[in-house]
Write a protein that binds this DNA or RNA. Sequence first.
DNA 1: CGCCTTTATAACCACCGTCTGATATTGTTG
DNA 2: CAACAATATCAGACGGTGGTTATAAAGGCG
Lengths: 129, 129
Amino acid sequence: MHAFDVLGDPVRRRIIELLADGEMSAGEVGAIVQREFGISQPGVSQHLRVLRENGFTTVRPQGTRRLYAVDPAPLQELDHWLERYRSFWNQRLDALSTEIARGRSRRRPDSGESPSDRRTRRRSGGTDG
Amino acid sequence: MHAFDVLGDPVRRRIIELLADGEMSAGEVGAIVQREFGISQPGVSQHLRVLRENGFTTVRPQGTRRLYAVDPAPLQELDHWLERYRSFWNQRLDALSTEIARGRSRRRPDSGESPSDRRTRRRSGGTDG
DNA sequence: CGCCTTTATAACCACCGTCTGATATTGTTG
DNA sequence: CAACAATATCAGACGGTGGTTATAAAGGCG
């Protein structure tokens, strides 16, 4: 699962935001998220699981509590994806279109970049990262 | 709809990547995406509509063709969201956890930041941007 | 005008992500 | 050990997303 897929959910984004300020217990995260989004404890727990299993958080037990912390590695993946577009917003958009058009006339045959997650069919249940 | 929601789909991400190299017609985008993802022309068109309606692309008619270009403004939104996490991956992770814990002990009562998109219920169909 | 191409839209639908209430698991305390 | 707290997991429901085929709309050409 791609980092964007994980963060394409507002609850999970919010959890990452909360954890950015520092380690929190599942319950603390839950209290806030339950209030803000109006979902149940198991609902929150499922989102925590997605984050955990996709490397966005680390978790350590402290008694009955589970302390979650953000793991920034997958976020770096997003940052890299965005690199190509950073130059875009430092320039005028119409002037950029012209430059892009020029750059496009000498288009590279193979940019050597792997395209975004490719799926044959959503129905196949092909979820790869 | 939040920028992450839009890009939380691999087809739409791919389309943005394609357009980053320069303006393309809907058909050109379609040919690539249909081959890579194995979806139909209307399927591609629907994704283009989502991108268009959420400000990720501009479109201009050229005869029967529609030329799409990337509009980077919403991507900037992502970049801002990521700012907070950039410092994370420039440091050792365990040392960072310690610092975060310290910073957490003097937690601000109100960070003044709007939380991620808040929904009452997914069932309510509350999709706001 | 008819014919063709391009591409958007309409109408429909399957499935999977996200939700729920119930329950299991983990840990602590008296 | 029982009781409690914290939280993960289970089993099932369901609606929205992302897909389809058919068709409409827009434009160009002979």
